Simulated assay, not measured.
Amino acid sequence: MPLQNRMNPMGQLHSVKAKGLLMGNRGQLHNAEKQIVRSWKLQRWITCALEYHGIKRELMAPNSYTELFFLDEPTSYAT
């Protein structure tokens, strides 16, 4: 089952396998079972490109921020 890490323009999270074009985060929102347990830890959004020099990271890793994905730039600004 896909992780609940895809944001829609209304700021709601969905479980969708596709990641989209951009990634953002609002701090650590998930628990050890990779389930979202809160809406935000930081009020500000951090949004960035999905790729950086081929670096790969585990999604929703323990003690790390929660990766959230947006379909496109307007969606990332709408939330």
Rank of each mutant, 00 (worst) to 15 (best):
G11P: 07
E51D: 09
T47A: 10
Q12Y: 14
Q4L: 09
M1Q: 05
R38N: 09
T75Y: 06
F70M: 01
L21F: 08
K56R: 10
E73C: 04
L59V: 12
I55E: 09
F70I: 03
A49V: 02
T66R: 01
L29P: 15
A18N: 11
I55D: 06
I55H: 07
E73I: 05
E33L: 01
L29I: 04
Y77L: 10
L13T: 07
I46W: 15
V37C: 00
T79D: 10
Q28R: 08
Q35K: 01
T79W: 15
D72Q: 00
S64Q: 12
A32R: 11
H14S: 09
K56Q: 08
M23C: 09
A78S: 07
W40A: 13
T66F: 00
K19R: 12
E73M: 08
F69H: 07
K19H: 09
G11Q: 07
A78Y: 06
A49N: 08
D72W: 01
K19M: 08
G11R: 10
L22H: 14
A78Q: 09
W40H: 11
H14Y: 06
H14D: 08
G54C: 04
F69I: 03
N63E: 13
E73P: 12
M10G: 02
W45K: 06
L29K: 04
W45C: 03
A49E: 04
R38K: 11
N31G: 01
Q4Y: 11
M10A: 05
I55F: 04
N8D: 13
G27T: 06
R57S: 13
A32K: 12
S76Q: 12
L29G: 05
T66D: 10
L71W: 02
E67P: 15
I36K: 08
P62R: 07
V37G: 00
L3C: 01
S39G: 09
T79Q: 14
A78G: 00
M60S: 15
R44P: 00
M60E: 14
L13Y: 15
K56M: 06
H53D: 02
A61E: 14
T75C: 00
K41Y: 13
L22W: 15
C48T: 13
P9W: 07
G24D: 09
R6I: 00
A32Q: 08
N8E: 07
K34Q: 09
K56T: 06
L71Q: 10
P2K: 06
K17S: 05
F69L: 03
Q43Y: 10
F69C: 03
L13A: 02
M60N: 15
G20Q: 04
S76G: 08
W45G: 00
P74R: 12
Y77E: 07
N5R: 05
H53W: 05
V16R: 13
